[in-house]
Computed example of a mutant assay.
Amino acid sequence: MTSLRMAVQLLVVPMLATTLTACGDPIDDYCETLKGHQAELTKTLGEGDTSGLIAALPVFEDLERNAPEDIRKDWKTLTTAISGLNVALEEAGVSAADFEHGEPPEGVSEAEAKKIADAATQVSGTKTQEASVRVQQQARDVCHTSLTL
């Protein structure tokens, strides 16, 4: 699925080269959480495929829980989109790695394939991408964290 690849490229790639530093007093816990997950995110997302994105979901959910109020909604947008894709894949009994050249594996019904495609579109959609940009900007501005490649 092209949407799956696009979702990974648009959402994950900017997060790969994250270099986390200490944050200011108001959100030390959030910044420490970011720092604590740095190595795991780099490893998980480094594969550059949708499986890595889904594997990183628990980390994203932890960051959402620890996020300051002003950015929590954006983390929620990200985790909801990724979770939706994960659920669609699980319900079809497949993983993102099972797709070859964007085609679902044998045994996936048309309805399941549509649900997966719709969920992948959510991940790569404008709303999710805008949330990703805001999360990255927050990390740079508040935690003095570079999210550039």
Rank of each mutant, 00 (worst) to 15 (best):
G93C: 08
T2D: 14
V59C: 09
L89R: 01
L85M: 08
V13Y: 15
L63E: 06
V13H: 09
Q137A: 12
S132V: 05
L34T: 03
K76H: 12
E112M: 06
A96G: 11
W75Q: 03
P105W: 08
E47F: 01
E69N: 08
T80H: 10
G107M: 05
L20W: 11
A7S: 11
A139G: 10
S109T: 15
V133T: 13
T50C: 09
V94G: 09
K127I: 06
K115E: 15
G102D: 00
Q138T: 14
L16H: 06
Q122R: 06
C23I: 01
Q137R: 10
F99C: 05
K115C: 04
M1W: 00
T79N: 12
A92F: 02
P105T: 11
C31S: 09
F60D: 03
D62T: 11
I116D: 00
T80D: 15
L57C: 10
D29T: 13
L20R: 13
I116L: 03
A120H: 03
L89Y: 05
A139H: 05
G48V: 04
L63W: 06
D49W: 01
A139N: 13
A55E: 04
M15T: 09
C143Y: 02
G93M: 10
L57V: 13
K73D: 15
A56E: 00
E106A: 14
Q122F: 01
D70W: 15
V135L: 03
T18Y: 04
Y30K: 00
A81H: 12
T19A: 09
E32D: 14
W75V: 01
A56R: 00
R134N: 05
Q138E: 09
H101Q: 07
M1V: 11
L63S: 09
Q38G: 07
I54V: 14
H101Y: 08
D29M: 06
T79V: 12
L57I: 14
G93E: 11
G52Y: 01
Q122S: 10
A111M: 10
C31P: 03
V142G: 02
L20S: 12
E61Y: 03
L41T: 04
S132K: 05
R140K: 14
G125K: 08
L16A: 07
G93K: 05
A139S: 11
H101S: 10
V135G: 00
V8Q: 01
T44V: 10
L45E: 07
I27F: 07
I82S: 01
K73E: 15
D98F: 09
A117D: 10
A139V: 13
A139R: 11
R5V: 01
V59W: 02
P104Q: 04
P26C: 13
T33K: 04
T77G: 03
M6N: 14
G107R: 05
Q137W: 02
Q137M: 04
L147I: 07
L41H: 03
L10M: 12
Q122E: 14
A88K: 04
E40A: 13
E90P: 05
G125S: 12
A111W: 04
M6W: 03
Q138P: 00
E90W: 12
D28K: 11
Q122V: 04
P105Y: 10
L45I: 07
K76E: 10
C23S: 15
A117W: 01
L45R: 07
W75A: 03
T33Y: 00
E90H: 11
A88N: 09
C143A: 07
A96W: 05
